[in-house]
Nucleic acid binder design. Structure first.
Lengths: 193, 193
DNA sequence: GAGAATCATTGACCTGAGTTAAGAAAATAA
DNA sequence: TTATTTTCTTAACTCAGGTCAATGATTCTC
């Protein structure tokens, strides 16, 4: 896989959080990468995450196992941050994170995070913004689940993340929508007419 | 309503977050109260919350309006913290907070929060713990909705918050479970046998 | 390219929740 | 207390999603 350029990385990052010119250099100097191969687990149930990721290329799914069956709650792709709950609270993870494709990501770990904050206090605002964004996003997802039917959520997915439909098999989309593959198939049929 | 004693307040607070002896005094000195009468809105859709609450007595519901219909997502009671999303992110609230009973709460607002943090830096850890707790709780609620049927969630509610069943009318419990009152009635009938 | 495995679709049947409408029970007001 | 409003229950019917099973369609492997 061809490696993402610095320019592309800064582009993605600044879409996510405002970055000043002088911070760009600091960031580029301290970048740490990680490559995750297809099917590889970033974290397993019961583990405590030691790092968080910013995805540059690829796709990662988050899911629980219920009676051996995957319940997918999220897909993370280019430009998204994966901050495992267990990274924040240092308790065993309740879910899995698994790459659906070969994935390249920026890595953040607590030590370098602390170090960086000491060296560059102006980064504090960035981490604050990130936490807040995650909070808002989580509660938005929550609302979404509560207020919309699987069919509505499927239509929304088509509109907002059409790439996901291309790169993720349908039975996993079904899991994400909270239904069985057969039901998604029927929804698709219904929508054709 | 008889007013909660300092002892009771500290008891509730320390169940929520660890409090050292010397912090107790600081806290007691700076307490600020608010009384909310039954049916009163703490916040309406579109407003930006200027304060957060720690409930000493009473009950508050959080809900959205969808086509004029309430969708309750939470009940807050004694010992729980109400931190409106709009308090954190300074954007208009998507939901309502309304007292179901006459409610007495401790109030926190950004100014006094900042002031207190300057004066007593040891409080910083407390606010950190609170944010983290809220995050974990939110994602737990999320899992709960995803992984359990309304019937299972009703049984769970009976086990974990039996008081709610006593103080909240059934049609609001139904809303909280994500179903109609008629369905809850049928679930209850089913469970009798 | 043949065969195997995985994934997607379809049909028949079941079940739980929504809808509508009616009446019973409980809470509130007069 | 009685009257009135609110809340709860029940019944009949509809419908979306689950289950089971069979069949196509793709993809993977050799």
């Amino acid at each position: 896989m061809n490696f993402p350029s610095n320019k592309y990385i800064i582009q993605l990052l600044s879409d996510f959080v405002p970055i000043s010119k002088d911070m760009e250099e600091i960031i580029i100097k301290h970048l740490e990468f990680k490559t995750i191969s297809k099917q590889e687990n970033v974290i397993r149930e019961g583990q405590i995450a030691q790092e968080c990721l910013f995805i540059l290329k690829g796709c990662i799914k988050k899911y629980y196992l219920v009676d051996g069956e995957e319940r997918i709650t999220n897909f993370y792709t280019e430009g998204q941050v994966v901050t495992p709950n267990s990274y924040t609270n240092k308790k065993p993870s309740k879910y899995f994170l698994t790459a659906l494709e070969e994935t390249i990501a920026l890595v953040g770990d607590p030590d370098t995070e602390q170090e960086a904050l000491k060296k560059y206090p102006q980064l504090a605002s960035v981490t604050g913004i990130i936490t807040e964004k995650l909070m808002v996003k989580l509660s938005d997802e929550f609302d979404n689940r509560i207020n919309h039917s699987p069919e509505e959520r499927y239509l929304q997915l088509i509109k907002e993340r059409p790439d996901i439909l291309q790169r993720v098999p349908q039975y996993q989309i079904a899991s994400y929508l909270g239904i069985k593959p057969e039901s998604l198939s029927r929804i698709r049929k219904r929508l054709k007419s």
